[in-house]
């Protein structure tokens, strides 16, 4: 699905030579952050950086060091209908790679990891009553945790991928 999307995007963009393929992909990708929800609207100018992990988490960091973490559209689609989201407790101090929570969907329990070291400010309580938000808007309303990063500069770490790199990794794997 994603491959087809990307391919047709590329085809389309080669016709529309005025638009760079990169920008076009960003506008079209379902793994891009939803612009109308807190992960994006938390600060006026939007997040200063959005990155992706190989475990299919996204992290959107704002200038003040606050970041939102969730799972990508690709991951949410692969997991299927979510029935329960295990949220992290506020004030937990997590290292990069620590378990942040988990998503149960159709009998599978999937771990979600903290992409970068930081302290949990809150879990997204609306997922308690409406776990389906993970499927409906995983890149926005279905955010899992709000954290304070230990160091905003960690967003530039080599382990994290840009949207383009993430989409590229999906094409390689599948």
């Amino acid at each position: 699905m994603i491959r087809t999307c990307a391919q047709s995007t590329l085809r389309a963009s080669s016709r529309l030579s005025a638009i760079s393929p990169r920008l076009f992909l960003r506008a079209q990708s379902s793994n891009a952050l939803t612009k109308t929800q807190p992960p994006f609207t938390f600060s006026k100018s939007g997040p200063s950086s959005v990155k992706y992990t190989s475990q299919h988490e996204w992290i959107a960091a704002h200038q003040d060091g606050t970041a939102f973490v969730g799972i990508t559209k690709y991951a949410a689609d692969a997991l299927g209908d979510a029935t329960y989201i295990e949220l992290p407790e506020a004030d937990s101090e997590l290292e990069a790679g620590d378990s942040l929570g988990s998503v149960e969907s159709v009998k599978s329990a999937s771990e979600v990891y903290q992409p970068l070291a930081g302290t949990v400010l809150e879990g997204n309580e609306s997922l308690n009553d409406t776990p389906q938000l993970i499927n409906e808007d995983p890149m926005g309303e279905g955010w899992i945790a709000k954290v304070r990063l230990n160091d905003l500069a960690d967003m530039n770490g080599e382990e994290l991928m840009s949207l383009e790199q993430y989409e590229e990794s999906l094409k390689e794997d599948h």
């Binding site: 997991l79 599978s108 999937s110």
Partner: peptide
């Protein structure tokens, strides 16, 4: 009956 686990790049 089946159940699944996904973590650390494995399942």
């Amino acid at each position: 009956g089946s159940a699944f686990k996904v973590a650390k790049g494995k399942s």
